[in-house]
Amino acid sequence: MALLEVKNLHASVEDTNILKGVDLTIDGGQVHAIMGPNGSGKSTLASVLAGREEYEVSEGSVHYLGEDLLELEPDERALEGIFLAFQYPVELPGVSMMNFLKQAINSKREHQGQEEIKAADFMKLMRERAELVSLDPKLMRRSVNEGFSGGEKKRNEIFQLAMLEPKLAILDETDSGLDIDALRVVADGVNKLRAEDRGFLIITHYQRLLDYIVPDVVHVMVDGKIVKTGGKDLAIELEEKGYDWIRGEAVPA
């Protein structure tokens, strides 16, 4: 059974059609990348998958491990193992990283019929996973994302991914705003989290991230549709030839 199966997905926001028939299948263990020009609908796809309420699905279906994903609330999706690394992580003044993470982890454990995590285990896990993305443990005493640098915010997303161990991780332009060093750190973290039973959907505008996180499949999205799918070389070709090349090819006969 596919981890994620998107069929003919149409979605709109405030009456503007953005996704116009997306087809996409991801199997466990695979890393898929979606590239495309600005405004092509990449981030909308991520939002629809995570359940952002402003987006309305008008047609098509999304199945996650065989279940109808669109029926689920955002939190139910998270508990079932979907994780969205935000393009713009939200600052939550007054919500401590520790409390936030503990509540998130315990929600998941409760959903899986497990007991609450023990304080010592939680601390250990937190230190371990923070190290994965070189996140300063001192940040755990701060409010979520408040006063974090751009790079820290993005690393914090991957850190949370590592803490919550999802089955499907969606990275929405995690590379935007990162310099090359930060990009490497984030990519290293993601690579360490690749696993047989975990799929990744990596949304990016630039090919550079894919030098470090080597994808199994690359899709190109233009104007709300996936217009081309290929192996990792497609990303390189795209970088060389630009999106106009695809646009030219994609013009219907």
Partner: peptide, 25 residues
């Protein structure tokens, strides 16, 4: 902010409560 918390597995009510207490923090 609510969506961010929900996307981490907190219910709407839990997310709301967390943010309101945070506001008073």
């Amino acid at each position: 902010a609510i969506f961010y918390l929900q996307s981490r597995g907190l219910s709407y009510a839990e997310a709301r409560a967390l943010l309101l207490v945070a506001f008073a923090r």
